[in-house]
Write a protein that binds this DNA or RNA. Structure first.
Lengths: 245, 245
DNA sequence: CGAGGCCTTGATGCACCTCAACCGACGTGG
DNA sequence: CCACGTCGGTTGAGGTGCATCAAGGCCTCG
């Protein structure tokens, strides 16, 4: 049921000078809207990158919290485990997105973060981020926006889980992925899913069979083409009309 | 369907010197863990309180964001409206809790906040809070914890919506309320619900009839006693065993 | 080439939704 | 005062969307 669980830690780190100034993700990540000297200061803070192979854990629920992680390359899922063994995927994270915001509250991670493909993250020591935020108000303010955005996103998922039917949920999910890929310079109509049907189902509150059937239905209707993990959206307007229609 | 919609603004304000130092909610609210001078500074920041009557809006989705609100007395719901008219309750908020964290990201409120009983809130201008946080690191850090806690809470709700059955959802909900009342010095086994069955249902992703039936079932089993909005929990252990059992 | 993971599809059952009737509490106005 | 309407809640009957169980096919990778 779980993906291959390889040794979780220690993380392989590289000191190949991460540099926010030249990072292509700059506009998606933490430095949004900062001036050059500020971005350089932030670059000093991010003291190393970690390589995480597919199936490896970035962190586990319960492990102590020191740093946030910015996804530099790759794809992650985060999931929480209930005591009775049920697991729920709480999010998928792609380049430029921050992982670990949930852990600030208790200084322990509340979820597992697992790489769904070979990935690379920038480690951002949180106490240093707070220190730096004191001297760079726009950085602090932007960080608050990021946390707030996470809350808004979660409310969207609650809405989805609370009041949408299977097909609407899947359409919403695909449109969300599409938009996020587009923002990163990839095609908004052709992409590869990095997660299994079961993981999608867990995120959307559905069983994997239901996800599969919903894919088939959208395909029969000529809205998308599905070939294993490859998704092609052929009629995005009709896909949009599925949600809240 | 909606409760009485009275004039939303302007809010009635009172300058009866709010004072965090002497506030009985201090340990539940923003000043947790601050020293005396720091709490006093925070008190200066909270420049006035607002009275909100039952059914009135604290803010509406789309309205511009200036301040967070700390509930000083009373009870609120927040809810988002979908374009097709469906509404989803995203949270219930009691004394000591902060409302408006979702609005930081876009500087617009993303949800309506409505008082479910006559209430009073402290208005906390957000830019001032950020300024003050620069000089009082523990305040900033605690604020980050509060935002993070909100994210964790939302993940809990996602788990509930994604993988629990009706009875489990209601049990989880009641236990959560029970714990929050207890923290505020009220009985953990006897309390009045401030929201309707429909609002509970919206929050839990259920229809009101299903909520009602779940209440009846728990009552038949001798776990709780329901009398309109009054809930008595007579066997909290069995109630706990309902969730994740 | 074989094994296992992932996916699809079908058949069946059930939890919850939907529709509907009814009840009690409350407020209003004759 | 009671008649009345409204709102929130309960309960029943029937329908349905999704879960469950099961079988089989297809990629992938050792």
């Amino acid at each position: 049921m779980l993906p291959d669980i390889l040794t979780p830690k220690p993380l392989k780190t590289s000191h190949a000078q991460p540099n926010c100034s030249t990072c292509s993700l700059r506009e998606l990540c933490l430095p949004v809207g900062l001036d050059e000297p500020e971005v350089e200061a932030l670059g000093d803070l991010v003291n190393h990158k970690c390589q995480i192979k597919r199936g490896e854990y970035l962190h586990r629920a319960g492990s102590s919290f020191k740093s946030l992680y910015a996804v530099r390359r790759g794809f992650f899922k985060t999931c929480v485990l209930e005591k009775d063994g049920r697991q729920q995927v709480t999010g998928f994270h792609m380049t430029g997105e921050l992982i670990g915001l949930d852990a600030i509250s208790t200084e322990q991670h509340t979820c597992d973060a697992i790489a769904l493909e070979d990935s690379e993250v920038c480690e951002i020591p949180f106490t240093k981020l707070e220190e730096m935020g004191r001297n760079i108000p726009p950085l602090m303010h932007h960080f608050h926006k990021i946390m707030s955005r996470e809350i808004v996103k979660d409310h969207g998922v609650m809405m989805l889980l609370g009041s949408m039917k299977a097909e609407e949920r899947l359409a919403t999910f695909l449109l969300n992925l599409s938009r996020r890929f587009f923002k990163r310079g990839y095609s908004s109509s052709d992409f590869i899913l990095r997660m299994t049907r079961e993981e999608i189902g867990s995120y959307l509150g559905l069983k994997l069979e239901t996800v599969s059937r919903a894919f088939s239905k959208l395909q029969e209707e000529g809205i998308i083409t599905v070939s294993n993990k490859h998704i092609h959206i052929s009629d995005i307007d009709r896909l949009k009309s599925k949600v809240g229609g």
